[in-house]
Computed example of a mutant assay.
Amino acid sequence: MLFINNWYVAAPAAEVGDRPLRRRILGADLVLFRDADGVIHCLSDLCVHRGASLAGGLCTGGRIVCPQHGWEFDGDGRCALIPAGIRNPTEPPKRARVPAYPVQEKYGLVFVFLGDQDETQRPAIPDIMPEWDSGDWHSGLIVREKDVNYIRMIENYNDPCHVHYVHEFAKWLPKGVTIVDHELTEHYLKAWHAAWDTQGNYGDSAGLLMEYHVVGCVSRNTNYQPDYPPQIVTAFVTPVDEHNTLIHMALLMPKGEITARDGSRVRGATAEEHAQLLALTRDVVMDEDYAVLKTTRPVQAARPSEELLVETDRTLLQARRMTLAFAQRQGTIDRRAWRELADEQIRVLPCPAHRSDPKNWVHKTVPLLPCGPATAIQASA
């Protein structure tokens, strides 16, 4: 199941420069580049002339230049110059344009809105990580691509009980948690997973505060342990396609003393402690998750009737249902129909200009499923 009309993280902002950067999201090829003013743009990567990859070209004068015949496209996706083949090179046909997708920079990341909703309809990127720009927190970013379905990855970040068993560093943490302080809205989920002590008691001193926003497919986990600085792990999950996921994971620890969840004062972390957490997560923890997720079946999320879920799976299941319901409202891609067309026809993700000006396009948009979320999983498998 892949769905449009959502914000997805495409790359760290620092990676987008004066050379085109190719990305695949939702099974579609895209290209990112900065114009002469440093503004980032995102276009469909396929030139409307002969289908060449624009990412193989260069950027000049704020435009991206196709490597095959030199056609130049601006940040709005319109061809501004056809150097050869027409009488007036600076007046290309109206159909000489490629889809352009809205872009925002936030938290040092490039968010791309892939869909045809206009500015008044688009959901806002959630303010889930205000600490990133405060200067009061140690911060670091890890980028990984894994051949695991993105729904499975989202569920992993909303599953508190796997930590003790999957991750070697966490064997000393309590095995059990109790879900309290639970909040659920249409787009947002938050729950405090209070850790048990040796007598089976729980409270506010130790546990995991889990948050999930379906807008941006982002999970934030704040780990509280007595007498130790809290750690914030925020994972932005981007579906490359049904079988591959791009993860941008931010890790933060406070530089100075901070108030913990239970009201106590906890010391800040040293730069060395944060660097150790970053290295451990990058070199060990993410691979431990991958080893389990890679062999989990089915590849995409199972139906609840095919799983024996328990109380501590509540947030995992709610994150799944929230994502499926959002996909139904926003538009689910019919991947089976798209695959049947792929060898002979080009299909692109819809952009806002498709809705405001539906004519004068060379490439048609991807087929969508006219069905609910449960059927969508089955039809797109």
Rank of each mutant, 00 (worst) to 15 (best):
N6G: 08
A10F: 14
A11F: 03
D18Q: 13
P20L: 07
R23I: 04
L30M: 06
L30S: 05
V31C: 09
V31T: 09
F33K: 01
V39Q: 06
L43I: 05
C47P: 00
C47R: 00
V48P: 02
G51H: 04
S53A: 15
A55Y: 09
L58T: 11
C59I: 00
T60S: 14
G61A: 04
V65I: 08
Q68V: 10
F73N: 00
D76N: 08
R78N: 11
A84D: 12
I86R: 10
P89K: 10
T90K: 11
T90S: 10
E91I: 09
P92S: 05
P93F: 07
P93C: 04
A96G: 07
R97K: 15
A100K: 08
Y101I: 02
Y101S: 01
V103H: 01
Q104G: 06
G108I: 03
F111G: 11
F113E: 02
Q117F: 04
R122T: 01
R122W: 00
I125A: 08
P130E: 10
W132A: 14
W132M: 08
D133F: 03
D136N: 07
G140W: 14
V143M: 13
R144G: 09
R152C: 05
I154C: 09
I154L: 11
E155Y: 03
C161M: 11
H164S: 10
Y165F: 15
F169E: 12
W172F: 14
W172K: 15
W172S: 15
P174Q: 06
K175F: 14
V177N: 09
V180G: 06
D181C: 02
D181G: 01
T185K: 10
T185P: 08
T185L: 07
E186P: 09
E186K: 13
Y188H: 12
W192T: 03
H193F: 05
H193D: 11
H193T: 07
D197T: 02
Q199E: 11
S205V: 11
S205F: 06
A206Y: 01
H213K: 02
H213A: 08
V215Y: 02
S219E: 03
S219A: 15
T222W: 02
T222V: 15
Q225G: 13
P230R: 04
V233I: 14
V233E: 15
A235H: 11
A235F: 03
V237T: 15
E242R: 14
E242W: 10
H243P: 00
L246A: 15
H248L: 12
L251R: 06
M253C: 12
M253G: 09
K255A: 08
E257N: 09
I258P: 09
I258S: 09
I258Y: 05
T259F: 08
G263A: 02
G263Y: 02
G263F: 05
V266H: 02
V266A: 02
G268Y: 10
G268L: 12
G268S: 12
H274Q: 08
Q276R: 11
D283V: 07
M286T: 10
M286C: 09
E288K: 01
Y290V: 05
A291F: 06
R297E: 06
V299L: 13
L317Q: 15
T323Q: 10
G331Q: 05
R336N: 11
A337K: 06
E340Y: 05
A342S: 13
E344P: 00
E344Q: 06
E344S: 08
W361I: 01
H363G: 01
K364I: 00
P367M: 03
L368H: 02
L369Y: 05
C371Y: 07
T375C: 12
T375S: 14
